[in-house]
């Protein structure tokens, strides 16, 4: 079974964030593999193991030439990567991203596409389903668990009340929620092996896309960016055995108790 995992290289979420001169998230620093994507990579590796064969590949898109984040996915065990890397992609919206990834994914046969429910930086959360529509695939989003039985997917999909058992024939697209598998740490051997694994770097011109990409293809514009109303810090007490008592008194003062 061949599985494609969509991954994103993002600025380190732990570092301070800012906008660039074009009101896009500043991505000029070092980019890392979005931790949210490691669950999809892990799940793909487990599914291919369970199927007794096949290949896990990753696909990514970005405006920077950096592929270090993608190598992290290869170090976990993915066999190869396709990266669409082009300065003209800067400012692309979710739908353009889906079009670019669809074109890249179509270049190789696959049985299953996995993605995170949303990226940790843009968190639009619509790209995977847009991608499924463009690829003509059924999709099951917010998966808690994924199993493949023959040519059928069996997924537990998160709901407000619990979960639904959902099935779909392959090929299909699934988004996985964080925390559902434990992503493996890349071993030293894995990190070394990743250095020689194939990374196919494509430019936009290598894909036969119909419309413009990047800011030109995005049909949304930022009107303004303003500071939000700030909250004031209130009282702060060091617990000396009286913390619970203070909380109760506060809840009484706001009439919750």
């Amino acid at each position: 079974m061949d599985i494609v995992v969509c991954v994103k290289q993002i600025p380190d979420p732990a570092a301070p964030q800012s906008f660039d001169g074009s009101n896009n998230l500043d991505r000029s620093g070092k980019l890392i593999l979005d931790e949210a994507d490691t669950y999809g990579v892990e799940m793909a590796l487990q599914l291919v193991d369970a199927a007794g064969g096949g290949e896990v590949s990753v696909v990514s898109m970005g405006s920077a030439a950096d592929v270090a984040g993608v190598r992290s996915a290869l170090a976990m065990g993915a066999a190869r990567a396709t990266v669409v890397s082009d300065e003209s992609l800067r400012g692309s919206d979710a739908l353009t991203t889906a079009k670019v990834l669809a074109a890249a994914i179509r270049r190789h046969p696959f049985d299953l596409v996995l993605a995170a429910t949303e990226s940790s930086d843009g968190y639009t959360g619509t790209m995977p389903v847009q991608l499924a529509e463009l690829l003509g695939l059924p999709s099951i989003t917010f998966a808690k668990s994924v199993a493949v039985e023959g040519a059928t997917l069996r997924v537990q999909r998160q709901t407000e009340l619990g979960y639904d058992e959902v099935t779909a024939p392959l090929p299909a697209l699934v988004t996985v929620t964080a925390g559902v598998v434990e992503p493996r740490y890349a071993s030293f051997k894995g990190i070394m092996a990743a250095k020689s694994k194939p990374v196919d770097v494509l430019a936009v011109a290598d894909l036969s896309l119909a419309g413009p990409v990047g800011a030109e293809g995005a049909r949304e514009a930022v009107v303004a960016i303003d500071a939000a109303e700030a909250r004031q810090a209130g009282e702060k007490h060091v617990d000396e055995g009286d913390g619970a008592e203070r909380i109760v008194a506060f809840l009484e003062s706001i009439k919750v108790l």
């Binding site: 695939l137 009340l161 979960y163 058992e165 959902v166 099935t167 779909a168």
Partner: peptide, 15 residues
């Protein structure tokens, strides 16, 4: 709808 609509709910689980 064709192939895109092939995902089907087999059961609901209420926690």
């Amino acid at each position: 709808l064709g192939a895109t609509n092939a995902a089907a709910i087999a059961a609901h689980h209420v926690e």
